[in-house]
Write a protein that binds this DNA or RNA. Structure first.
Length: 574
RNA sequence: GACCUGGUAGCUCAGCCGGUUAGAGCAUCUCACUUUUAAUGAGAGGGUCCUGGGUUCGAGUCCCAGCCGGGUCACCA
């Protein structure tokens, strides 16, 4: 493969370390006594410490040097003094290993003693140095000046997402976002566990992709010879567990939907679903607002969270607005008195495109999405959705045509979706059949019928309230990010095209000398076919040009040799 | 899927109306330097200008196609 100049230098340094008897990748554990940030927090002079991390940002000044040790917590300044690091006659560890053979980004282990420099920077005077892992590629050289301005930031989104490991090393704010994500999930888990609800695992591979309406990813099980789908939701499985007798179950469910990708959608995403028996959606609203208040406190130490140009106040209680009132207020339409034709006319008059596959529920959803959704910046529960857009939700206790469902809107986006769960098995069967009709009408996202789920309901499910919280979107809101890619370690990307190098035998079969094989790919001939596709004179010139440019210490090729390769290809040696 | 926009050194970016050997800062290498912190001073090396065609005496620059991103919109219970 093609190595940059800096990479070649680092590989040479690695080999030089070996020649000195220093293993650049030692196997032994390196036990530490301190980490950077906590040492800084409890700093006192004269402490003996053993630490490990990446060597960053070296400043060499002759017989003394400064550098930074970067570990999982942060950075801490190291002071290397030639005569303290090498008290004897041999100054090689400082002059050669530290100054010449180590590079920015290498992992080292050090022993030393804490002290304060003249300018007041807590530091460790290093008395022993161990190479722990040599880095072959140079990290981007991000620097921050006195004013906090970042110079040469590593900020190309493509490179950052494709090489998140580099992003995390050089961009502390990126690391902080993912630490917040972890804290959010832990807060939810701790809160639910304290209530006695049980974390469960349900199938990711499902033969019926139920619980939501979306296009699934399809795969195939060879032994059973059946199609299987990656789950689009886990809802129906958690309800089966409520039937089975658990009072409260929850799961952080990685869901997969084979749809578009953008700032708020990734093909795989995480939803936390919770189901609690003997509760209704009013109870769930209180539970949700209390939970979100706790999460904001855990992440920010406050219920006020900055988000773009707004400050979101997560302190309960949140406003509760019915779907009907929301549309009445922002679109001036009273959905109560309108049938499907009336709604379609109302949508058209407001400039909302409709088509014949849209039923009453879908039309109301369009009205809300177009005219209302973006108004709800502060956390707001939108309640009581029409029956035909909520096939898994219990009918409203006193409003015919509506269900006991709410969505939590924050910053104009849906963050959670919850119901008083439908537990009437005959009603559920009728709702599924209505979905089937929608699907026949052309709505390709209407739900499949899950007969085993219906059977479970027929055995009896207690009244239950359930919620799904979009964890990725919640993390975006809690960390002031506008893109889902910023809260996923490895967002989906089109696969990167790496140059495929041919196997060793492929080129040698043509009679290419061993010394040349490793250079063919670098010179632009990835495969034997590439080599044969070019004229021998062209190959000859390109390879010898490459040899000269890279000062290769191997004999130049003659045109006869190169011509012979093509002949070998045409009539392979027996 | 449509439109807009970008791809030049390890990183961040300049590069004019198409014209000599493609530049800068940081990073790297060499030398100097024992409390610096965007260390400093002197010098050097480093390029498939995303790929492939085309126009031209001449293309990083113009045109076409493609690849890979980003943005806006559409789609998305």
């Amino acid at each position: 493969m093609i190595r940059s100049e800096q990479e070649r230098q680092r590989i040479a340094s690695m080999e030089a370390l070996r020649e000195r008897g220093l293993d650049p990748y030692p196997a032994a554990a390196f036990d530490i006594t301190h980490r950077t940030a906590s040492l800084k927090a409890s700093f006192g002079e004269g402490q003996k410490v053993r630490m490990a991390g990446r060597l960053m940002n070296r400043r060499i000044m002759g017989k003394a040097s400064f550098g930074e040790l970067k570990d999982a917590e942060g950075v801490f300044q190291l002071y290397f003094n030639r005569d303290e690091l090498c008290p004897g006659e041999d100054k090689g560890l400082y002059n050669d290993v530290f100054k010449k053979l180590l590079d920015r980004g290498d992992f080292i282990g050090i022993e030393g003693e804490t002290f304060m420099t003249q300018v007041g920077e807590p530091s460790v005077k290093v008395t022993a140095l161990t190479v722990l892992s040599k880095a072959i590629r140079p990290l981007p050289s991000v620097k921050v000046d006195e004013d906090g301005t970042v110079h040469d930031a590593f900020n190309d989104p493509e490179l950052r997402y494709r090489m998140r490991y580099v992003d995390l090393v050089v961009n502390p704010h990126v690391k902080a976002t993912f630490e917040a994500r972890s804290k959010i999930i832990k807060t939810i888990r701790d809160t639910f566990d304290a209530e006695g609800w049980m974390e469960v695992d349900t199938p990711v591979l499902q033969s019926i992709p139920g619980g939501a309406a979306a296009r699934p990813f399809t795969t195939h099980h060879n032994a059973l010879d059946i199609p299987l789908y990656l789950r689009i939701a886990n809802e129906l499985y958690l309800k089966r567990l409520i039937v089975g007798g658990f009072d409260g179950v929850y799961e952080f469910s990685r869901n997969f939907r084979n749809e578009g990708m953008d700032r708020t959608h990734n093909p795989e995403f995480t939803v936390m679903e919770l189901y609690v028996a003997y509760k209704d959606y009013h109870w769930m609203m209180e539970t949700t607002e209390n939970l979100f208040g706790h999460i904001a406190q855990a992440v920010h130490g406050s219920t006020e969270v900055p988000l773009g140009s707004h400050v979101i106040n997560f302190a309960p209680p949140y406003a509760r607005v019915t779907m009907r009132d929301a549309i009445l207020e922002h679109a001036g339409v009273d959905i109560d008195g309108l049938d499907e034709a009336g709604l379609r006319a109302a949508c058209e008059s407001l400039g909302i495109d409709t088509d014949d596959s849209m039923g009453r529920g879908k039309l109301i959803d369009e009205l809300f999405g177009e005219k209302c959704e973006h108004h709800y910046i502060q956390p707001t529960f939108i309640m009581d959705y029409p029956t035909d857009m909520s096939p898994l939700t219990k009918a409203h206790r006193d409003k015919p045509g509506y269900t006991e469902r709410f969505e939590l809107m924050i910053n104009g986006t849906e963050v959670a979706n919850a119901y008083s769960e439908l537990n009437d098995p005959l009603d559920q069967r009728a709702r599924f059949e209505a979905q089937l009709q929608l699907s026949q009408r052309g709505d390709d996202e209407a739900m499949f019928i899950d007969h085993d789920f219906l059977r479970a309901l027929e055995y009896g499910m207690p009244p239950t309230s359930g919620i799904g919280v979009g964890i990725d979107r919640l993390v975006m809101m809690m960390t002031n990010q506008t893109s889902i890619q910023e809260v996923l370690f490895f967002p989906q990307m089109r696969p990167e095209a790496f140059e495929r190098s041919a196997g060793h035998a492929d080129f040698s079969a043509l009679g290419v000398p061993q010394a040349w094989e490793q250079h063919l790919v670098a010179a632009g001939f990835s495969t034997p076919a590439d080599l044969m596709g070019a004229k021998p004179t062209q190959v000859h010139q390109r390879l010898n040009g490459y040899r000269k440019k890279n000062k290769l210490d191997i004999p130049a090729l003659s045109l006869e040799e190169v011509t012979a390769w093509s002949q070998n290809a045409e009539s392979p040696a027996s």
